[in-house]
């Protein structure tokens, strides 16, 4: 299973290359990485899903903290948190199967965001498991292409990443 790291970084040019470079140089595997600015424009937030045992995670965390542009790193895998990814899936869908597809869309509380003669684009948000599940369910109809964002995550409750105590 992947571990979820939340990383606050200075919004400086090159900061993504520093983080990504550290991972590849030291041979750690990133499953997913997403970056965006935060409410403070000087700070960006990364959510990184990384594979590895406890020793690897400890090293990853410390190597990240060592980067000058990294402000805060937290491993929230074991803390209660909400994580989501978004996926857009283009499925082959002529009129004969549309009803069936719409049922699946409903079950997964996804949405249809584009319709053409013989295809649909479906938008789904959820955790990794849910997105995998709808992908499986739609496969038999023929997925023409799909795109997935990386995972983003927030701790449950009122604590913010900036307030989180580092060990």
């Amino acid at each position: 299973m992947g571990n979820t790291l939340t990383v606050l970084v200075e919004n400086n040019p090159g900061v993504l290359a520093r983080v990504a470079g550290m991972f590849s140089r030291r041979g750690y595997n990133i499953d997913s990485l997403s970056v965006s600015t935060t409410d403070d424009p000087r700070i960006s937030r990364m959510t990184i899903i990384v594979q590895g045992d406890e020793a690897v995670l400890q090293q990853v965390t410390r190597q990240l903290r060592k980067l000058v542009d990294v402000i805060k790193v937290q491993d929230i895998t074991r803390d209660p948190h909400v994580d989501r990814e978004l996926s857009l899936i283009k499925v082959t869908a002529d009129t004969t199967v549309r009803g069936e597809i719409m049922q699946i869309v409903e079950i997964f509380r996804a949405r249809i965001v584009d319709v053409s003669q013989d295809s649909l684009i479906i938008e789904v948000t959820g955790d990794e498991g849910k997105v995998n599940a709808i992908e499986e369910a739609l496969k038999p109809f023929g997925i023409r292409e799909m795109v997935r964002t990386g995972t983003i995550a927030l701790l449950r409750g009122s604590v913010t990443a900036a307030e989180y105590e580092e060990d």
Binding site: G14, M22, R25, V68, D69
Partner: peptide
């Protein structure tokens, strides 16, 4: 050079 030296400096600036 900041790209080239990223892994061999403690930090760098442009």
């Amino acid at each position: 050079i900041t790209g080239i030296t990223m892994p061999i400096t403690k930090h760098n600036f442009l």
